[in-house]
Design a protein around this nucleic acid. Structure first.
Lengths: 200, 200
DNA sequence: CAGCGTCTTGATTGATCGTTCAAACAAGCG
DNA sequence: CGCTTGTTTGAACGATCAATCAAGACGCTG
């Protein structure tokens, strides 16, 4: 008994294909052959291809806990190590795809040059959710981070480093570029922890 | 007397259009109407649209000094300030485009999911040129940076922060996201300079 | 079973894409 | 002038795209 509704099938296929090939390079025909549906069924559920994208971005937004955070944080308790465990999750994705795919949100964000406002807001919301999760880790780290540090900005900087690192790893087809970005971020956190200790 | 050859006209138009709309969303027809050429003329110079892209990426690679570094570094002598002057140049680009366009190389790098090897190598070469310029600044900074710091990795981290910041500024349509990334990077450099002083 | 609303089928549409090519044109040379 | 070589013209081509819709199948209720 396969309960997967057409809608769910399309969303799942679109998540994979948009990640693999990007939004513009994924044709509606691709979605149809992957889901074994006909065009009429797709257009019965989604008014347009863009609405599929919106569905995908909403699914990412709703699923960040189960799809991203819980898998990465299952074995990790230390709040700062949680941050690097999450980054390591992205590393795994990069390696398993031979450095060809990166962050699905980041790729879409740069691919869509003049996105519909709803799409842009969903991209922004996904980023905001991600950095909010990091900021919770920073708050949990308490006095290990100097109190004068803007934790929101630092959380955003983690995303910055991740996205920039993913981009370069994909361009060079070499994880080492991602690893170096993470190493530099780690060095920054160590300097911050030292500074917090020194003024304690 | 306009000496601009068809080739130069196409490259210049393609630089603008690929930056504005991306590679896939720029049609050959767009290039033709912008350059007032006919399709045959374009295809006489470039075997395919992808060869136009290659020409653009080569132009960026060859022109990094005059187009990017010299304008940003004209008034700046301090090597570390040069780094932030370059970042400020990108900030200007972001603001002037109302946060819609970012780094032309980064956008292309994430837009092209399965690029031709020549294209990928040129994207990588452009990134490598950029970080090499930063690394020269870091070398010039001498003992202000702790000697045990991997200057190549740190130079790459500057690019990482720039690309990640640009991506978020564009997604949120707000330069503040870029500014915060730069601020965090600046904090990192200040911590490094302090560490270098402490062990001097 | 009949009736009705929901969902599915898949051929078809018109637009747009990158690319081609025979023909016309221009410039240099003997 | 005639001949060659290089360049431009622009209509046309086939492929592919997102989207449509009349017709049919399905499922529920009475």
């Amino acid at each position: 008994m396969n309960m997967a509704s057409p809608r769910d099938k399309i969303i799942q296929a679109a998540m994979e294909l948009f990640w693999l090939k990007g939004y513009n390079s994924t044709s509606v025909a691709d979605l149809l052959s992957r889901t074994q549906l006909n065009s009429g069924s797709l257009y019965h559920v989604f008014p347009s291809k863009q609405d599929v994208l919106i569905g995908v971005l909403e699914a990412y937004r709703e699923g960040i806990e189960q799809m991203l955070l819980e898998p990465a944080w299952g074995q990790v308790a230390d709040p700062i190590e949680k941050i690097f465990a999450l980054l390591n999750g992205y590393r795994t994705m990069i390696v398993e795809s031979d450095c060809t795919y990166g962050c699905p949100i980041g790729s879409l964000a740069l691919e869509l040059h003049e996105p519909d406002p709803r799409v842009r807001e969903l991209l922004a919301a996904n980023f905001a959710n991600w950095t909010a999760a990091i900021e919770r880790c920073l708050d949990a780290a308490g006095k290990r981070i100097p109190p004068d540090v803007d934790k929101g900005a630092l959380a955003q900087f983690v995303l910055t480093a991740m996205e920039g690192g993913v981009m370069q790893a994909r361009t060079h087809r070499d994880v080492a570029y991602f690893d170096r970005a993470v190493t530099q971020l780690r060095a920054h956190f160590e300097l911050l922890e030292q500074a917090a200790k020194a003024t304690a």
